[in-house]
C-alpha cells in the first residue's frame, strides 16, 4: 500500500528562475523508513516541505505535478488537515518552540488545542507523547530552559501528539551536540518501532544506513537514485553528489570487500563480511 506518492513534482520559489525540484517521482510504502541524502542546496528540505503541503501552500511559487498522501492531493488540501497525517520536525529546536506556552506540558498541547480536541483526550495524548520521548519529568519546565536535545525531543512530542502516520525530520540533529543528537536518534528509532512511516534528511550517513529501508539520493533538484542503503552506498559516483558513504562502507570499498556486488553499510554487516573475507584468504 502506498502511503505517499510523488508524481512529476516540479517547483520554483517565488521570484527565482531555478527549478528547485525538477520532475521528481517516487512512492513510499506505509511503515517504511526513508532516508534522504544529497549535498546542501540539492532540494531535500524543499521536497520535505512539498510532502507536508508547505510547498506550495505556505511558500507559493510555481508548482507542477502531484503529491498524494493517502490518495489526497496535498496542494489542493490545507496544511492543518495534512498536519493530521504528516508531521514535520525542523533543524532548529529553538524555532519550533511556539513561544506562547510557559510549560513543556502546555507546549505539547498547542497543536491539540488548535484542532479542537477535548481535554481528556488531550491529556492522554500529551502524557503518552512526553513519556515516549522521555521528557515527562520536565513537564512543568519552561520549554526554553531545556537543552537542545531535550528541546528537539519536545518538538517531536508536539508532533507525535497530533498522531500523524508519517513523520518527516529535516536534519533534526544538525544543531545539536553529540549527546543531544544521540537522544534524538534514539527517539526516532522508537518511533520507527511503532510502525510510523518516517522520512529523515540527515548528513550522518551511518545513521541513514542503519535506519533506512530505502535511501533517496538527490542532486540539483532531481532524484538520482532511490534504493536500499546497500545499493545506494555501493555506487561509485557518490563523490559527485557530495555524499560520503558510511565509514564501514568506505573501508570495505578500499579493500574491495563485497557480497554479490554490494558493500556493507552497517558495522555488524561489515564485521560479518570482514570475517568471511579473512577466512577466504
Amino acid at each position: 500500500m502506498d502511503k505517499i506518492v510523488v508524481e512529476n513534482l516540479k517547483y520554483k520559489y517565488p521570484l527565482t528562475d531555478k527549478l528547485v525540484l525538477n520532475d521528481i517521482s517516487f512512492k513510499i510504502e506505509k511503515g517504511q523508513f526513508i532516508g534522504i541524502i544529497g549535498q546542501n542546496g540539492a532540494g531535500k528540505s524543499t521536497l520535505c516541505q512539498a510532502i507536508t503541503g508547505l510547498v506550495p501552500l505556505f511558500f507559493k511559487g510555481a508548482y507542477g505535478g502531484r503529491v498524494l498522501v493517502d490518495g489526497i492531493e496535498v496542494a489542493k488540501s490545507n496544511i492543518s488537515d495534512i498536519s493530521l497525517k504528516v508531521g514535520m520536525v525542523f533543524q532548529n529546536p529553538f524555532t519550533q518552540v511556539t513561544g506562547s506556552k510557559l510549560t513543556v506540558y502546555e507546549e505539547v498541547a498547542f497543536g491539540l488545542e488548535n484542532i479542537g480536541l477535548n481535554r481528556e483526550e488531550m491529556k492522554n495524548r500529551i502524557d503518552e507523547a512526553l513519556n515516549l520521548l522521555g521528557i515527562y519529568r520536565f513537564k512543568d519546565r519552561n520549554p526554553f530552559d531545556l537543552s537542545g536535545g531535550q528541546m528537539q525531543r519536545l518538538a517531536i512530542a508536539g508532533i507525535i501528539a497530533m498522531q500523524p502516520d508519517v513523520i518527516i525530520l529535516d536534519e533534526p540533529t544538525s544543531q545539536l551536540d553529540p549527546q543531544g543528537s544521540e537522544e534524538v536518534f534514539k527517539a526516532v528509532w522508537d518511533l520507527k518501532k511503532r510502525g510510523i512511516t518516517i522520512i529523515m534528511v540527515e548528513h550522518k550517513m551511518e545513521k541513514i544506513a542503519e535506519y533506512s529501508d530505502k535511501v533517496l539520493l538527490m542532486h540539483d533538484g532531481k532524484v538520482i537514485d532511490f534504493d536500499t542503503p546497500e545499493k545506494i552506498f555501493s555506487r561509485d559516483d557518490l563523490m559527485q553528489y557530495g555524499v560520503i558513504e558510511p565509514a564501514y562502507t568506505r573501508i570495505c570499498k578500499a579493500f574491495d570487500i563485497k557480497d554479490s556486488g554490494l558493500y556493507p553499510v552497517t558495522l555488524d554487516r561489515a564485521c560479518e563480511m570482514v570475517v568471511k573475507y579473512n577466512e577466504h584468504n
Partner: peptide, 17 residues
C-alpha cells in the same frame, strides 16, 4: 535576503507549472 522578504508578500499566488 529576498527569500525572506517575499515571504510576507501577500500578492504571491501559486503558479501552475
Amino acid at each position: 535576503p529576498k527569500s525572506l522578504t517575499n515571504l510576507y508578500d501577500n500578492k504571491n499566488e501559486i503558479e501552475q507549472l
